[in-house]
């Protein structure tokens, strides 16, 4: 792949990461309601929501490297009625705008809690539609390797997997920062991490298993398909086999390492600070695994016809 083609994984991976992270963050915010005060939990999520907005902005900027005429990108929305690409762009913009609104409200209008909550769920709705549009672009008959509903599911799984790990890492980095600054909210952040990490690690395991199931389904579909499909499969098991295996190993390592570290923390009643390196490495490996997966996704397709 050349630079223009790498822009696609950059955009899709980062945007799915942003949507997934937003969803996981809002889920934590919702579930933490009975245990923490609104002010406390909004203070905890203020930095992660900023990072999500930044990630979405980078993804949107990165997508322009895929275009021959980046300054004409806005014209893509003209075909909203007929084109999934146009819809993807529109919902990307909507997701970004609502996310930025939430960022503004959380930083400058903290008392408008209901509006923040509502806008957050609206952003997530836009994100879900965005990922659906993103996946539907690839569901075309001429691309045998892509033309499967498993692509839609795999995009959602990737989104949640990346989002969960990103939020886990961000909470940990925020805690570390607070410790260095001797901030008064260290104890609060520690409690939030202790409450949320069991769920995050369990979610990660489920999603990795789901990811493997999707891979299995895709391979079976390709194996049972026509010549084009079998050719695509042969690319995976021949030329790209090291990358394919590297992806699986990355996901297994990331999931196992995180679960092991979290279990050890609960068993030894140690502080969450011990999770810093395992969480960071797990997040990195999940990212590597999913980027390789996206690379394979683009690299194994063989076009039928023109």
């Amino acid at each position: 792949m050349n630079v223009r083609e790498w822009a696609l994984p950059v955009y899709t991976i980062l945007m799915q990461l942003a949507v997934g992270a937003f969803f996981v963050l809002w889920l934590i915010r919702h579930l933490a309601g009975p245990k923490f005060s609104a002010r406390e939990i909004d203070r905890i999520i203020s930095n992660p929501i900023l990072v999500i907005a930044f990630t979405a902005a980078v993804a949107m900027g990165g997508a322009h490297f895929h275009l021959s005429k980046p300054f004409h990108s806005f014209l893509a929305v003209l075909n909203f009625k007929t084109s999934w690409l146009s819809r993807e762009i529109v919902f990307t913009a909507l997701f970004f705008l609502t996310t930025m609104s939430v960022v503004y409200l959380i930083y400058f209008q903290t008392h408008r809690r209901r509006l923040i909550t509502g806008l957050g769920w609206l952003a997530i709705l836009f994100g879900i539609i965005l990922i659906y549009c993103m996946a539907r672009i690839y569901l075309i008959p001429t691309q045998v390797a892509w033309n499967s509903t498993s692509v839609i599911v795999s995009f959602y799984v990737t989104s949640l997997m990346l989002g969960g790990m990103t939020i886990a890492s961000l909470l940990m980095l925020d805690l570390k920062f607070s410790e260095i600054k001797n901030a008064e909210d260290v104890e609060l952040r520690t409690r939030v991490i202790c409450h949320s990490y069991s769920g995050l690690s369990a979610l990660n395991v489920i999603l990795v298993v789901a990811s493997f199931v999707i891979v299995y389904i895709q391979i079976r579909l390709l194996a049972q398909g026509d010549l084009i499909a079998v050719t695509s499969l042969s690319l995976i098991v021949d030329l790209y086999l090291p990358l394919f295996l590297l992806r699986l190993i990355s996901l297994i390592y990331a999931s196992g390492s995180l679960v092991f570290a979290v279990l050890r923390m609960y068993r030894r009643h140690s502080t969450p600070q011990s999770l810093m390196m395992p969480v960071y490495l797990s997040c990195l490996m999940i990212l590597v695994g999913e980027i390789i997966g996206r690379f394979l996704f683009y690299a194994t397709h063989i076009r039928v016809g023109i």
Binding site: M1, W6, P9, V10, L14, L17, V51, T55, V58, S169, L170, L173, K176, F177, I180, K181, L239, Y240, P242, L243, L246, Y280, C283, L284, L287, V288, I291, I292, F295
Partner: peptide, 27 residues
């Protein structure tokens, strides 16, 4: 400085892309 704890967080995505890119060159 304290803010440097965020550098690995900011670099994690570029690092992941570079590692992936490096991996692809082995084929």
């Amino acid at each position: 400085p304290a803010w440097s704890v965020f550098i690995p967080g900011i670099l994690i995505v570029p690092i992941a892309f570079v590692i992936t890119y490096a991996a692809t060159t082995f084929i």
